[in-house]
C-alpha cells in the first residue's frame, strides 16, 4: 500500500488500513529485537533528534533504541518547556535544530498541538512522542501490538480504560485506534476525571469501575496523580485506590483471560494493587518490548514517506531491485 505520511502526529490522521500496515510493519521489526545483533542498516546516515520538552525516560529511551537499531544517528535534546520564559519560541528552537538537518524530529511537549504546530513549519518529519493531553500515537500502537499478541485481533475486543481520562493523551489515541480497528471501549473513573464528549467518541462511560470491568478482555489502568494542573480532582490516593483501583477482587469481574495493561509508570497500591501488578495477567513488560518495535516501524515509515512524489529515477531503481 502507499503510505503517504511524512509525519506521525496522531492516530487521527490514519485510516484502518494504514493502522494495520503500521502494526504489520512493527511485527516485522519485532524479530530484530530478538536477535543477537539487534541492528539493521535501514536508516544508516539518517539523523534523528529526540526533542523532549518534558521529562520522559521510557519513551525517549524507547525511541532512542529504536533509532539506533535502525542504524540512525540519534541525538537527545532535553529542552525546557517554558521556552517563553527563556525568550525563545518553540518555532525558533525547532528552526535552530532543523538548521542542523535532522531527518526526523521526535518530539514530546507539554502543549497539546505542539507537534502539529512544528510539522506545519518544518521540512523534516515530525513524530509525536506525546503532546500535552492530546495524543500519544506510538503508545496506542504499542498497546495495539500487545493486545493483538495476546488476543489475536482487536476486532470484537472489549477494552476497559480506567483512571484520569481528562489528562491522558494515551487514552485519546487509544480510543481512536481501538474504534478504527473494531474494538469497543469502556471508560470509567471519577466524574472529575471524565471530560465531556466521550460518548460522542463512541465510548461507553461508567462512573463505577465494576461496570466497566465486567466481561472485559483488556483492562488498561492509567497513572493517577493527586495534583493535576494545580487542581485537586480526588480527595486522596487512599480513597481513589478504594473506589477506582484495580485489585484481585474486581479483576475477577473481567474475563478470566483478560490482560492488564498500564502505560507506566505504575503507582503500586494506588491505581493497581501489587498483587495484580505482579500477577500472571499483567502484560506491561510486553508493552515496553513492543514499544521499541512500534517506534522502529514509525521511524522507518516516516523516513520512507518523505519522497512521495518520487523523482524520475525511482522507477528505474525499483526495477533494478526487482531481481
Amino acid at each position: 500500500m502507499n503510505f503517504a505520511h511524512r509525519h506521525v502526529l496522531g492516530i487521527k490522521q490514519f485510516n484502518a488500513e494504514e493502522l494495520n500496515f503500521i502494526l504489520d510493519t512493527a511485527k516485522s521489526f519485532k524479530e530484530i529485537n530478538t536477535r543477537k545483533i539487534k541492528k539493521v542498516p535501514t536508516l544508516r546516515g539518517r539523523t534523528i533528534v529526540n526533542l523532549f520538552f518534558e521529562a520522559s525516560t521510557r519513551t525517549r529511551t524507547s525511541f532512542e533504541i529504536a533509532g539506533k537499531r535502525l542504524s540512525a544517528d540519534t541525538v537527545n535534546i532535553s529542552a525546557s518547556s517554558s521556552s517563553v520564559v527563556k525568550g525563545e519560541t518553540l518555532e525558533d528552537t525547532a528552526r535552530n535544530i532543523e538548521a542542523m538537518h535532522p531527518d526526523i524530529i521526535v518530539m514530546r511537549h507539554s502543549a497539546s498541538g505542539a507537534c502539529h504546530y512544528l510539522a506545519e513549519r518544518l521540512d523534516c518529519s515530525v513524530i509525536n512522542a506525546g503532546d500535552g493531553t492530546h495524543e500519544h500515537p506510538s503508545q496506542a500502537l504499542l498497546d495495539a501490538v500487545t493486545m493483538i499478541q495476546h488476543k489475536g485481533q482487536l476486532a470484537g475486543l472489549n477494552v476497559a480504560i480506567i483512571g484520569d481520562i481528562t489528562h491522558s493523551r494515551v487514552v485519546r489515541s487509544n480510543i481512536d485506534l481501538l474504534h478504527k480497528l473494531g474494538a469497543s471501549v469502556r471508560i470509567a473513573g471519577p466524574k472529575t476525571m471524565l471530560p465531556p464528549g466521550l460518548e460522542r467518541l463512541g465510548c461507553k462511560v461508567f462512573s463505577r469501575v465494576a461496570e466497566a470491568l465486567e466481561g472485559a478482555d483488556v483492562v488498561m489502568m492509567l497513572r493517577i496523580q493527586l495534583e493535576r494542573q494545580g487542581k485537586t480532582l480526588i480527595p486522596s490516593l487512599r480513597e481513589y485506590s478504594r473506589y477506582f483501583g484495580l485489585n484481585e477482587k474486581n479483576l475477577a469481574l473481567a474475563k478470566p483471560d483478560a490482560i492488564i495493561m498500564h502505560p507506566g509508570p505504575m503507582n503500586r497500591g494506588v491505581e493497581i494493587s501489587s498483587a495484580v501488578a505482579d500477577g500472571a495477567q499483567n502484560v506491561i513488560l510486553d508493552q515496553v518490548e513492543n514499544g521499541v518495535a512500534v517506534r522502529m516501524a514509525l521511524l522507518y515509515l516516516a523516513a520512507g514517506g518523505e519522497k512521495q512524489n518520487h523523482d524520475a529515477d525511482e522507477g528505474d531503481i525499483h526495477e533494478q531491485l526487482a531481481d
Binding site: 497539546s112 503532546d131 495524543e135 493523551r169 465531556p196 464528549g197 467518541l201 494542573q229 487542581k231
Partner: peptide, 19 residues
C-alpha cells in the same frame, strides 16, 4: 475557568485542550 483555553466540550476533549 481554571487554566482553560477553549470552550469545554467534545472538541476540547478531542484536542486535549483544557476547557
Amino acid at each position: 475557568v481554571g487554566g482553560g483555553v477553549m470552550n469545554d466540550g467534545p472538541v476540547a476533549t478531542e484536542l486535549g485542550l483544557k476547557g
